[in-house]
Computed example of a mutant assay.
Amino acid sequence: MDTTVDVRIGWIGLGEMGYGMAKNLNNLLASHGSHLTVWNRSPGKTDAIQKQGAHVASSIESLASTSNVIFTSLANDAAVENVYEQLLQVAGKNQKQIIFVETSTIHPTTATKISQLVSAFPQHRYLQCPVFGRPDRAHAGQLVWVASGDAAAIERLQPYFASMSQSTIDLKTTDVAKASSFKLLGNFFVVGSIELLAEGFALAEKIDIDKNAVLGFIETFFPTPSWIGYSQKIATGSTGKAGGFPVELGLKDVGHMRKLAADHGATLPTADLAYRNLEKLKAQGKGDQDWSSIVEVLREGPSSQ
């Protein structure tokens, strides 16, 4: 990384994923005598990273006026649209280039909309770069990064991406909707795996098979981090949202993938099933539990399906 280049990085959004990524990025910057500037809607969430040397901006406008690279990590499409409307009110007046890097899981049409808003200012660039991995992977800098947008901007920012991820999947396209579609496809495989594992563990309980034996089987025959991780959560009853992915956000993501499929004449029966189970959990007041809580619906038997 060329430390002689004036790179001033801002970060918006310090949820469980955002904080983990921002922490690692700030560590990289600190090793080169620089720092991250952050802003979060809930001010209390900036305390931890401020203690690690990051600067806290007083507002989105302040962050936008002092940064030439801005990362965003937000909960949903509405939050992304709201933040970018505010960012562009300031950035539109700045003749020097700003590279925007959006890392949230959003619908492809939202990514396209934001890209079009940014393109009204030719000096700026917009990258859609969603990430794969749970919060613990974000904290460990072991996410899988997906990149789309301007090739030169992606190349320039690779060292920063690497500080937060174990690998980067460069889709090599300026069509930012592709990265959002890719993320939804990947999340479909994740929620499909959760649905399958939850069904299997629920059956194991009903036929009185030791769940630790089932877990051992999965660790031997399907030794992948996501299968093992979700199997452990299901087997141990660890359904809390801490370090997990809440049901409410799961509904958002599964809703997006179902709409994406419908818009393109495809069907996702597994996603439909998972969506119904997630809806039941939310109706039971469990919207903040990890989405592997699907197993709780399945334990109730056919009447709940």
Rank of each mutant, 00 (worst) to 15 (best):
L87V: 03
G285Q: 14
V101T: 06
L127A: 14
L215I: 03
F71R: 02
D136S: 11
L196S: 10
G244Q: 03
L36E: 01
Q128T: 05
D272P: 10
H139R: 15
V144K: 07
M17C: 06
I114E: 10
Q86G: 00
I234M: 01
G192N: 07
L185A: 14
G15K: 13
F189M: 14
S62Y: 15
D170M: 07
A202Q: 00
P130D: 07
K252V: 02
I12M: 06
Q289I: 03
H107K: 02
L28Q: 10
Y275W: 15
K280W: 13
G15L: 13
G244K: 03
T37G: 03
F161A: 02
E102W: 08
P43Q: 06
T66G: 03
L278R: 04
L197H: 06
S226V: 14
L74K: 00
G53C: 10
A271Y: 08
K286W: 15
W291P: 07
Q86W: 00
T173Q: 09
L87A: 01
H124S: 01
F100R: 08
Q97W: 06
F221K: 09
P246N: 11
P246K: 06
L281M: 12
A64R: 02
K172N: 15
L88W: 08
G200F: 10
T174L: 13
R156G: 08
S304T: 12
S104T: 12
G265V: 01
S180I: 07
V38G: 04
E155S: 08
Y126V: 10
G250M: 01
W227N: 14
K113N: 14
F132E: 08
A111N: 12
S59H: 01
A64M: 04
F201P: 09
K206A: 13
F245N: 08
Y160A: 07
H32R: 08
I9D: 00
P159V: 05
P159W: 05
A22M: 06
D47F: 12
V190T: 07
G243Y: 15
G287M: 05
D2E: 14
D288T: 15
F245M: 10
A138S: 10
L249M: 07
S193G: 14
L278K: 03
A177N: 13
D77H: 11
G18T: 00
K241P: 11
V80I: 06
V131G: 04
K259A: 01
I99A: 04
L278S: 04
A147I: 01
G13C: 09
R276S: 13
I218A: 03
N26M: 00
A153F: 11
D77E: 14
T4K: 11
A179S: 15
S292D: 10
I49G: 01
D2W: 10
I60K: 02
S193W: 11
T72Q: 10
L260E: 14
K211L: 12
